[in-house]
Design a protein around this nucleic acid. Structure first.
Lengths: 110, 110
DNA sequence: TCAAGTTCATAACATTGTTATAGACCGGGC
DNA sequence: GCCCGGTCTATAACAATGTTATGAACTTGA
């Protein structure tokens, strides 16, 4: 049984889907996450997490147009379910802000 | 072999140790983390994470005074190793800020 | 219809997070 | 001294999350 809270990567991927909007499928999600965080994420990893988030109702997916202009297997697009995902994100963010509050200065520059 | 990055709870516990300073052992770390985040964390959980972080060199520990004024087994106190822990925290924080940047408004109030 | 490129999909595995349980240690009454 | 209850450490088993390896589905274009 999954937790109710979000894992670290789950949160990051959820935020990336929010950011990418209509272009959210495994490949660009992995790329954008890597770009923003300097963390290497393979498309397979992104795919797995997207799937699990959908299983919990935080995302829904739909397959792309059946006859796209390019080669390759049809894409599976994801979008966030606001009612489920936003409260979870809010909670993560609040916890984070509370934990960091007053400690930023101890990190030194950058 | 552990990852180089921090897990979610590892980051949170590291921040809590920073916050508590000299009074950081399993019991108050769990309590303070629970207080700040509304997340229930048992002393056993905090203890495990503290231990793993020490194993990676992000924390060091020492046992309390052998004859304290109170009952109970001697406490094991932890403190952060700046050279190891601060860069990891900085990286986590930067990733987080980058991922959230521009998205705060979409969460709605609170 | 075949080769090549793109993406999904599954399954096995590694790491992290959590709980259950027990035992070490200490002070205080008696 | 010896039990009692409380505090905290410690271990080990387990559950959830994160990651990689591998392969096959699907499409285009020659």
């Amino acid at each position: 049984m999954p937790r109710s809270r979000l894992g670290e990567l789950e949160e990051q991927i959820l935020l990336t889907v929010l950011r990418l909007g209509g272009e959210s499928y495994a490949v660009p999600v992995a790329r954008e996450l890597g770009r923003l965080t300097a963390r290497e994420v393979s498309p397979a990893t992104a795919y797995m997490v997207l799937r699990r988030l959908e299983g919990r109702g935080l995302l829904v997916s739909s397959v792309g147009t059946p006859a796209p202009e390019r080669g390759g297997r049809p894409r599976r697009f994801y979008r966030v379910v606001d009612e489920q995902a936003l409260p979870a994100l809010r909670e993560s963010r609040n916890a984070m802000l509370a934990l960091w509050d007053g400690l930023e200065a101890r990190l030194g520059p950058s």
